[in-house]
Write a protein that binds this DNA or RNA. Sequence first.
DNA 1: TTTTGAGTTGTTCGA
DNA 2: GTCGAACAACTCAAA
Length: 482
Amino acid sequence: MANAARPVVLWFRGDLRLRDQGAVAAAVATGQPVVPLYVLDDETPGRWRLGGASRWWLDGSLRSLAADLAGAGSQLVLRRGETVAALSGLVHETGATAVFAGVAVEPWARALSERLETAMRQSGVAVHWHRTVSLFDADAIRTQSNGPYSVYSPFARACFARQPPRPPSDAPARILAGPDCSSDDLNSWKLTPTSPDWAGGLRESWMPGEGGARVQLRRFVADALGQYDGTRNVPSVEGTSRLSPHLHFGEISAGEVWHAARGAAADTGKPLETFLKEVLWREFSMHLLWHHPRLPEEPLRREFGSMPFRQDRAALAAWRRGRTGIPMVDAGMRQLWQTGWMHNRVRLVVASFLVKHLLISWQEGESWFWDTLVDADLASNSANWQWIAGCGADAAPYFRVFNPALQGAKFDPSGDYVRRFVPELTRLGKQYIHTPWDAPETVLAEAGVRVGETYPRPIVGLEAGRNRALAAYRSLDRVGAG
DNA sequence: TTTTGAGTTGTTCGA
DNA sequence: GTCGAACAACTCAAA
C-alpha cells in the first residue's frame, strides 16, 4: 500500500463537531484518507463514567456528527471498550499512520492520553494533539510568578489581556473516505432510556448536535444577549444562553461563542462583558481542574476536610426529588429531573440549601448533578460545588448562606418559575408562593394546598438550618490552612 | 522582599 | 421602608 493512501485516525472525544475543530482540520490537511472514530469507554473514567442524562445527549450528538460526516463523504466509526485498545485495534486494521485528537482536561482523560501516546509510539504512529475544548492552551494562562491562578478576577483579566481567540474556521466540505471498517450500531449502545422512558422532557427541551448548537447560539445572540445583565438571573425567562450542554460535548467551540457574542453585541457593552465573563468561568474551572486533579474528590482548601457533614438519606432523597417543602428548591430540582438542566441562579440556591441548610456534603450534590445534568462537566461541576460549599477557589465566605425564600422573592417575584415545576402550588398567589408554610389557612384552602399533605412541610426550618450551618463552619480549625 | 489592594452570585440586624 | 454595617480573617496577585 502506497503511503499516500494510508489513512489517519481522527479520534473525537469532547469535541463532537466539524466546524472550528483543530484536529478535524489537521487530519483533513494531511491529504490522506480519514477514519473518524468515537469510543464509548465506560472503564477508564471510573466513578466519572457518563451519567444517565449525558448518555441521552451523547446519543443525539453522535447521530448528528455521523450525519454531518456522511454529508462530507465520510463515515463515523463507533467502537466500545477501553480506549487505547480500541484505538490500537483500529490503527492496526487500517494501517493508519497517525492519530489526530483534542486535548482533554479530566485527570482520567489526561492519563489516557499519555497511555495512548506511549502505545502509539511503540507502533511508530504519531499522535497530534489540538486544543479543541478551551479558549486557551491549558498551561498558557499563568501568573507573573509562572504559577496557576486561584482567584477568578485576575485570571479573567489575564485572559482578556491575551490575543482574543481566532475567528472560527469552517468545517471541511469534503473528507476523504478511509477504508471500510466495522462499526458498532449506535442503537446497540442503548444510550437512551426505554423502560421507563424518562427522557420525554429532555427531548422537548433540547436539540443535541452541532446544528442544534448553532441554532441556539444564534437565538441567544439575537434575543437575549442585549438584556443579559438583567434577565440572566430570572429563571422564569430564557435569559441565559443555554449553551452549556452544547459546549460540554464540544458541538460548538468556545471561540465561536466568543466571536458571535462580540460581533453581534458591539454596542451592548455591559451585557457582553458579563456574558464573556461567564464563558471565562468555564475556562477558569478547566484551569483549576488542570492544576488540581483531585478537585472532583477533595476540598481545595484542606481545612474543610473535617467539615461535620451529616448522613441523612431521607433528606438527600427529598432534595433529589424536589420534595423538600421549599418551593424554590423543589422547582429547581424538578426542572433538573424533567429537563436535564437547571437555571444557573437556581443551581446556587439548591446547592447552598443542600450543603448548608441540610449540612450534606457537596460531593453528594456533585454526584447527583453528574447523573442528571445534560451539561455535566467534571471541571465546572466540581469547581462550582466547591465554590458554593466555601472550600473552593475564591470561595464565598462561610456565612454567605442563601435564603431560598428570599432568593425566590428576589428572582422569581411572580412565582411563575415555581408554578411551572411545582404544580401543587399553581393556584397559590405570589405573596406566599415562596413561603407556603406562612400562608393563612384560608389562603391555602382557596389554593387547594394542604401543607404536609398535597405539598411537603419544610424538611428543615430556614433559620434553624442556617444557624446549624454557621455553627458547623465555625467549628472548623482555620489554623494552618493548606 | 515587602506591601497593598482586592476578592461572582448574600443575609441579617439595627438605626 | 431603606441603608449601612457586621459577619473573619486570609490569601492571592501584582507592584
